[in-house]
Design a protein around this nucleic acid. Sequence first.
DNA 1: TCAAATGTTTGATC
DNA 2: GGATCAAACATTTG
Length: 263
Amino acid sequence: MPELPEVETVVRSISAHVIGRTILHAEFFSPLVTRSDFKKTAQALCGAIIRGVRRRGKQIFFDLDNGILYVHLGMTGKLLWNTTAGKHARAIISLDSGTLIYDDIRQFGRMEFFDNLPQSFDRAGPDALNIGFEEFYNRLKRRKGQIKPLLLNQSFLSGVGNIYADELLFKARIHPRTSTQRMSKKRAALLHSSLISVLQLAILHRGSSVSDYVDSAGERGSFQNLHNVYGRAGQPCPRCGAAIRRIVIGQRGTHYCPRCQRV
DNA sequence: TCAAATGTTTGATC
DNA sequence: GGATCAAACATTTG
């Protein structure tokens, strides 16, 4: 599923193709994904010049000369460059350099045009790769509840999803149910450094392809081969050999080592 | 054949 | 506001 490392990989693999290019034509097929009038969106994009591509958390922003094209991949969204449109293509955007296809099986993602970004975007938390420890710790201390659901809360921190939450908690040896209020500064520091290092390593491996994630060239990532706990229930912990356990926290499958990660 | 599971965000409710 | 939970959806797995 596209989390920060996957979205970063998509942005990197698409940038060179689209920056500075002009949109010649745009076609949308799904009201769910665009959440607004097709024709209006297509009209706004037609003739627009792409100045740049940015990412914050899992959000992608194409900065245009006349506004912003916002893309969120949801669970199964893909931005594909120069491929043929398949069964689940939701948008086809033709540039003077090639074709950008938005494909999304489950349609939890979105692709929207804005003249200016709405206020609601201000609620997003700081990007998980660009947050320093002091800010991380201060924000953590203001929250109550279990650590794992908080890590998944995008208004607390932008970019962490289910896979990386489990992986970074394993690295920091912190139990996913640990209360935020009871977390010492020392453990918070370990959590913060694990956050940064796990995400950076995942980006080096071009993300995790556990189901159908691919980058804009259709290439799978390889970080799934380095997962320590995610999707490994019943298998031995790479650190201590105990069987990895799978429980449900906040309606999400959660994987951890019962021996390494104590409450 | 049907039910459950998958995991991200939004929006309703407490 | 924050915490919690159902819903949006399509496909795969049991």
